[in-house]
Design a protein around this nucleic acid. Structure first.
Lengths: 198, 198
DNA sequence: ACCGTACGAAACGGTTTCGTTTCGTATTTA
DNA sequence: TAAATACGAAACGAAACCGTTTCGTACGGT
């Protein structure tokens, strides 16, 4: 990313240190999580990263480009899920990890981006292209369960990707309720397992 | 609401016309939907409602109080659902209506309020207390279906309130995808009916 | 070593927004 | 009718923020 930006730049001699670029993107990411896109101030990014505004604007001409790069760079990858020996155990462990992500970084980032995505379709498209689909992971978990005899053919693993993040996000942000073990188990036992096992 | 505000005010002679108050709250509501909470400017409310800032600040000392009153006043009520003669028909019609609301007013309002709710717990609590639960409605629809022999006892109507708004909102705002008839039918046939009928 | 470019810090000029004040006029009450 | 209050429009003073420029210094390439 940053290298690519520099590659199309004019004949540069001095260039932005990779460490400094990371600090700028990290500051952007953290402030984006705290304040949302509309509340994000380039001034604040520069202050937190101890970078000059001229530098930041030179490399990222718009707030949208800065934010897109920040998310692309700092977004954590999908953690693997342990094989617990049962479909229910796998789902509880996995959904618990997703819940921690929703309550941690991913949720606040998304919460802070909705209005901007409504107004800036280009940014929206770019951010949506970065979304990690959970379908492959769901397929792996369900295939394991099928192999164990817990599931019969005909289940739709895509329902996991469709339902679980949405339920976790809305419960936490719209309703302000805890994503505790009880809720995770409800999500597994009352919603996802019935839909997969039927 | 507005009357209550006036009732606790000092010995007033001239007072804010009810029509004027409504115009201010309507302008607030509309701008909130367009720009979100963080993008809402009191200046813009005053310009749109043709009210002075002194007037607005006199009656609503903070942006949060203005926004809470605007939502309380302008939020449309839950429309009734026609009795189509079948559970599936009822759900398709009802979820279609919810989808139109999510894509219309309710969704953008919510999308624009997440960050504010994170930072202002009082505002969050107040807004959450205004949320129309769909449980009673779901119970009525399901009771009708049970009476028709379509459902057996043991279904959980609360799942409708839990799942449907979240799925509609996230599909529209997070994924930027259409809430078309196909998706409504998928929501009914592949998710809600299996969970209710089991 | 020299030259060209860009760094960080600070300042710039312009705009926006906030919450408050001022002023002429309107409304309500006694 | 007079007095008190508040209306809408405009202005106020301060702060924040934007994107750009300036300056001394640092870095990369030849």
């Amino acid at each position: 990313m940053v290298d690519q930006t520099l590659a199309v730049a004019p004949r540069r001699t001095r260039r932005l240190d990779e460490e400094r670029a990371q600090a700028i993107l990290r500051a952007t990411y953290d402030l984006l999580r705290e304040a949302g896109y509309q509340g994000l101030r380039v001034d604040a990014v520069c202050a937190r990263a101890q970078a000059s505004k001229a530098t930041v604007y030179r490399h990222w001409p718009t707030k949208a480009s800065l934010v897109a790069d920040a998310i692309r760079t700092c977004k954590s990858g999908e953690a693997g899920v342990p094989d617990t020996g049962s479909l229910r155990g796998d789902l509880v462990a996995w959904f618990g990890a997703i819940a921690r992500s929703v309550a941690g970084d991913e949720g606040p980032l998304l919460a802070g981006l909705f209005v901007a995505m409504t107004h800036d379709p280009e940014l929206a498209a770019e951010l949506r292209s970065m979304r990690d689909s959970k379908v492959a992971h769901a397929e792996a978990v369900c295939a394991r369960a099928e192999h164990r005899g817990e599931l019969r053919p005909g289940y739709d693993p895509g329902l996991i990707d469709e339902i679980v993040p949405a339920q976790l996000f809305m419960r936490h942000f719209a309703l302000g309720q805890e994503l505790d073990d009880e809720f995770i188990e409800h999500l597994v036992d009352d919603i996802m397992l019935p839909l997969l096992v039927r």
